[in-house]
Design a protein around this nucleic acid. Structure first.
Length: 747
DNA sequence: TAGGGTCAGTTGTAT
DNA sequence: ACAACTGACCCTAGG
């Protein structure tokens, strides 16, 4: 955490605004900590809602008797709040519906007019009716492209003037945040589909094994065939051999889903820069480019505006290219950063030896580039690079706008005619450094000897499987992080008794059937993780139930993902303004576990007597589920967790977290991770050895694909103006996270 | 590491 | 409506 907090405000006692008023009734001065401020702010909100809704007389009583409030009243609180949230959701949905409805109606109108035309020529009513039905059916299946084209034909004028309409859905966030959110949506779909795919493979495997065992009888095999046909009902997949082939392109399916849900950030093609994508931006797959609307195809090198857009782009001779990808796949390519010779498309063998196998023609993308040259239309250029990372084979960097200077046809290396396009970078754009272009190579140290400013070879002192070096290029003389004891796992204070009574599942080896695994059932009859890349969390949840010591499965089980220790080469480094910080030398894919937040598990009330301590993490899992605490609502399909809630109702534990983790004197790498207003990690509560939500383990997961050397951060979640010092004045802490959407203050 | 199957939207042409 | 096109991705086999 932010270490200079203590440097800036030595031993300052802090009171916190509580429930909209100061905590005189709760007169113990509360110290600042991660989440209580949020919870209190939320309560303030709840209180206000209540004020609006409940009669004022009742309110007066409640104000005075907050602590003694009956159970029913508390429930009311939550219900009120829930209903508000629900209302909000509904109205948003309505908005969306409205929007899509408008669009649909446009299409419908067109359909109708078309039908009318047909009616005129046909005259036969029955035929027309049939056509109407079939057309409607087809409309459902209509490809997004067709729909888009139809849409554009109707409102072409709007689109040429204001192409921002697609952006509206995400509100007034910063442009880069919109891009980030879109990629997150893509990753979410992607991981969900990978999970589906893994489940399908496991099923197919299990069934083929069954088949092998019972292979004697032919009739049995036939029965199974029927079974598979019924169960998966999918048109083509599920042949017994399919268990081997998991290559169902979840990335492409994720794109399809996004198109269906209208989640593509910029669904309309545009010439020039894409808002929120700066020069140097890194994509981790071709599919990401499609998700944003940067390049509308995952395979084509040249993205161009074709004849179908003639009404919208009447000022241009079409087709014109808008974006190209240099992947170095063509044998004739020459790539010198500022000056590029790009080989046109066509005559290329995609499979096999990947060489030219025919003449190229001046059509499609080639023609589009030619038109760009003649009409001075700039083209976005993306360069693909092999990545040393084991998780992404390729990284694509946006290199900026290029002009097509000239073009010619020549006999290529294989003897076939190929078109060549010379592209030159438009001036006035940020310069490209080799480091930007080849992002991972060289900069990440490969051994201890290469590390600059090394002050400690391993702050974990050998506890972690992967050593954690510390570097300091800021202080003179450079000092290592001190004043704490490294501890890989959670320690429990004397006053706390950690239960170990979690009932386990009866699976053997690796849990893979979510319908029979007891632990999976608790997660809503699904596994929260995919096994790809050693385990990735599909989506943030209220709480994750992992397999534990009482389970029949072993360490390889995917539902123990957070128990496997550090995976990535992390480094603690000194910053100028933010104290210590953490970054990874390895690429971290979204959903991957980064580390646990360890320290001493203690009672919150015991911590109130301790002076300033900036390393306290309150376990607010219970509050999160109940909707308190200002946490964003999470995936709600965890009925088991909701059942668990009843247990705590009598204990009045919803007002503030009962337990916390104190990493002040003892902790792990997590205590060095800084706050950021637009973070790349998120907090996830996990249960494995017991099912007490108040004592859940706290894990940090990657929210995005995180490139090497990017600082790791999560949202501390303070509500502004919620922290007061001992004089009752609002205490402020500036935020140095540097995010575009930074709130400028930590609290 | 090479090879090969599969993925699915976009485009232009043929109904 | 349909076929053609496409500078990707991932698994598997074989050295």
């Amino acid at each position: 955490m932010v270490s200079e907090k203590s440097e800036m405000s030595p031993k300052l006692k802090i009171t916190v605004k509580y429930g909209g008023k100061e905590t005189e009734s709760k007169d113990t001065p509360m110290q600042q900590r991660r989440s209580s401020a949020r919870i209190q702010a939320k309560q303030k909100e709840v209180e206000e809602i209540k004020l609006r809704r409940i009669a004022e007389v009742v309110e007066e009583k409640e104000k005075s008797g907050e602590v003694v409030t009956a159970k029913s009243n508390k429930r009311k609180k939550i219900n009120d709040e829930e209903s508000v949230v629900k209302e909000e959701v509904v109205s948003e949905q309505q908005k969306k519906k409205k929007k899509s409805h408008c669009e649909e109606s446009l299409v419908k109108e067109e359909d109708v007019s078309e039908q009318q035309k047909k009616k005129k020529t046909n005259g036969e009513e029955s035929v027309v009716k049939e056509e109407v039905v079939s057309e409607q059916q087809k409309k459902k299946k209509k490809s997004p492209a067709t729909a888009r084209r139809e849409l554009m034909e109707v409102r072409n004028e709007e689109i040429t003037v204001g192409s921002e309409n697609a952006v509206g859905a995400l509100g007034d966030k910063s442009l880069t945040a919109k891009v980030k959110d879109t990629i997150r949506v893509f990753n979410k779909h992607y991981l969900h589909l990978i999970k589906d795919e893994e489940e399908r493979c496991a099923k197919a495997k299990a069934e083929s094994e069954k088949k092998k065992k019972a292979g004697k009888k032919v009739s049995k095999a036939e029965a199974e065939k029927k079974k598979t046909g019924k169960k998966d009902s999918a048109k083509k997949d599920i042949q017994p051999n399919d268990s081997k082939h998991a290559a169902k392109r979840p990335d492409l399916k994720a794109l399809t889903k996004m198109m269906q849900n209208n989640e593509i950030l910029y669904p309309e093609k545009r010439i020039g820069n894409i808002p929120g994508i700066e020069v140097g931006y890194q994509f981790y797959s071709r599919a990401e480019m499609v998700a944003v609307g940067f390049h509308s195809h995952w395979l084509n090198g040249i993205d161009f505006i074709g004849q179908s857009y003639s009404k919208v782009y009447s000022c241009y001779e079409l087709p014109v290219a808008v974006a190209i990808v240099l992947s170095g796949m063509y044998e004739d390519d020459l790539d010198n950063a500022e000056d590029v010779v790009y080989t046109g498309q066509g005559g290329h063998n995609l499979t096999g030896d990947k060489r030219q196998m025919g003449d190229q023609k001046m059509e499609r993308g080639n023609l589009a580039l030619k038109n760009c040259a003649e009409q001075c239309v700039p083209v976005r250029v993306v360069r693909g690079h092999e990545s040393s990372s084991s998780y992404t084979r390729k990284v694509y960097t946006y290199d900026g706008l290029y002009k097509v200077v000239n073009y010619w046809a020549e006999k290529g290396i294989s003897g076939f005619t190929v078109y060549k396009f010379r592209l030159r970078r438009v001036e006035g754009q940020p310069t490209l450094t080799t480091n930007q272009v080849y992002f991972t190579c060289g900069r990440v140290p490969q051994s201890v000897a290469e590390i600059r400013g090394l002050v400690c070879e391993d702050i974990s002192g050998g506890q972690e499987d992967v050593p954690i070096p510390a570097t300091n290029l800021v202080d003179d003389p450079p000092v290592p992080p001190t004043g704490f004891k490294y501890c890989k796992s959670l320690k429990v204070a004397k006053s706390v008794k950690l239960p170990v009574n979690a009932p386990g599942c009866k699976c053997k080896g690796i849990c893979n059937d979510p319908t029979t695994c007891e632990c999976a059932k608790r997660n809503g009859s699904e596994f929260p993780y995919v096994s790809k890349d050693g385990g990735r969390l599909v989506e943030a949840k209220d709480v994750v139930f992992e397999c534990g010591p009482n389970c029949g499965c072993d360490d390889r089980c995917v539902n123990r993902t957070s128990q496997k220790g550090l995976r990535y080469r992390l480094e603690v480094f000194r910053t100028a303004k933010k104290g210590w910080a953490v970054r990874s030398w390895d690429f971290i894919p979204s959903g991957a576990p980064v580390c646990e937040y360890t320290g001493i598990l203690a009672r919150t009330e015991d911590m109130d007597s301790v002076l300033e301590n900036n390393y306290i993490f309150e376990i607010d899992c219970l509050q999160t589920i109940k909707g308190l605490g200002g946490r964003e609502r999470r995936s709600q399909n965890v009925p088991f967790a909701v059942n668990l809630l009843d247990k705590y109702d009598d204990q009045g534990s919803e007002s503030a977290p009962e337990f916390c983790i104190d990493a002040g004197s003892t902790g792990n790498i997590a205590r060095f991770i800084n706050h950021c207003c637009e973070p790349n990690l998120f907090v996830q509560c996990v249960l494995s050895t017991h099912h007490d939500l108040r004592l859940a383990r706290v894990m940090l997961f990657a929210a995005d694909n995180i490139p090497p050397l990017q600082e790791l951060t999560y949202d501390y979640g303070y509500e502004l103006d919620s922290v007061l010092d001992s004089d009752g004045k609002i205490k402020q802490m500036p935020c140095y996270c540097g995010a575009t959407g930074c709130r400028k203050r930590l609290f």
